[in-house]
Amino acid sequence: MRRTDNSAPTPPDRTLADVPLEEEVVLVRMDVAGDDVESLLERGIVPGCKLCPIRHAPAGGPTVYRVDGALVALRKETAACLCVRSALEAAGVLASN
């Protein structure tokens, strides 16, 4: 299943909002406007970090993610601005380079 044959990185087609619970993903791109992104960056949510959704708050509220051993809750709108790739896939791309 590992994409070792493809040297060009596949365009990330998923956002963090689409990731099911308990699947670990790697952040590849952040489409958050301007300075707003800083509150995420400061908490270690930067390209290359691993995120894992572990719990949805009731009634469509924010989702709790595991980031670097800490728990951080993000709204769906914010998660939808973060492009991710599954951790396994990312490891494969890295291995191929």
Binding site: S39, R43, A70, V72, A73, R75, E77, T78
Partner: peptide
């Protein structure tokens, strides 16, 4: 513009 809501959940 709505800013990202980032809430840390301490243990």
């Amino acid at each position: 513009r709505p800013v990202p809501f980032v809430m840390e959940l301490p243990p």
